[in-house]
């Protein structure tokens, strides 16, 4: 039996090779840190429920992508069906920060006609001594793109929950205000099973309209 959730959001995690995308997702979905993980070839899939308010659960479908350039022609196809994304760089690798712009361009040109909510993530923040990107400049860049910025560490479990939850809340807010709507043929947001006890009348009508179960 499937757990009860209000909406399902599809997220994509992108960024250069070895910035720690798979490790971050594993920490979030499995609660553990893998010292090493295979290079992702193509795309991987994970899911987890998040409770954004008491009784309000969102199911996250998280797509892990390959960082190596040549796999972009494959990962590209998955932007369109995502409502949100984590754009990762490694704070100890300046190059991965410089490439953030390219990743964003790549994503933005492939989500059309939909919109995608991004969160900029400076990963591996436990390695403070090897830091090559300051928090200030990362915040400035995020601000310029109209994104939030969070620093995380999968190793020490710093801000991992926070990063995913914040992004989920931001998307949820946009769904409530109607800026993001459920659409036929788009996988980004789907409505799910609604428990009868905890929800506002507004959500009932919405889910009644869409729920096919």
């Amino acid at each position: 039996m499937e757990a009860i959730w209000l909406y399902q959001f599809r997220l994509i995690v992108i960024g250069d090779s070895t910035v720690g995308k798979s490790c971050l997702i594993r920490r979030f979905t499995e609660g553990r840190f893998a010292q090493v993980s295979d290079p992702t070839v193509g795309v991987d899939f994970f899911s987890r429920l998040v409770e954004i308010e008491p009784g309000k659960r969102i199911k996250l479908q998280i797509w892990d992508t390959a960082g190596q350039e040549r796999f972009r022609s494959i990962t590209r196809a998955y932007y369109r069906n995502s409502v949100g994304g984590l754009l990762l760089f490694d704070i100890t690798n300046r190059r991965s920060f410089q490439n953030v712009h390219d990743w964003l361009e790549e994503a933005r040109s492939h989500v059309q006609p939909h919109n995608i909510v991004f969160l900029l993530v400076g990963h591996k923040c436990d390695l403070e001594a090897q830091r090559e990107v300051t928090r200030q400049e990362a915040e400035k860049l995020a601000g310029a793109y109209g994104m939030r910025y969070v620093e995380t560490s999968a190793r020490d479990a710093i801000n991992v929950e926070h990063a995913f939850t914040e992004l989920t809340r931001d998307i949820f807010a946009l769904v409530r205000t109607g800026e993001i709507t459920i659409q036929e043929g788009w996988e980004g947001v789907k409505s799910g099973f609604v428990p009868n006890v905890v929800h506002s009348s507004e959500e009932v009508t919405k889910s009644d309209r869409r729920c096919l179960c």
């Binding site: 295979d38 070839v41 193509g42 899939f45 494959i74 196809a77 996988e187």
Partner: peptide, 18 residues
């Protein structure tokens, strides 16, 4: 609506190694 290639690309690219 499952895109099988997401999964099988890896199988083919590594000739099933790993």
């Amino acid at each position: 609506d499952i895109e099988l290639s997401l999964i099988t690309l890896h199988w083919f690219l590594t000739s099933f190694a790993s």
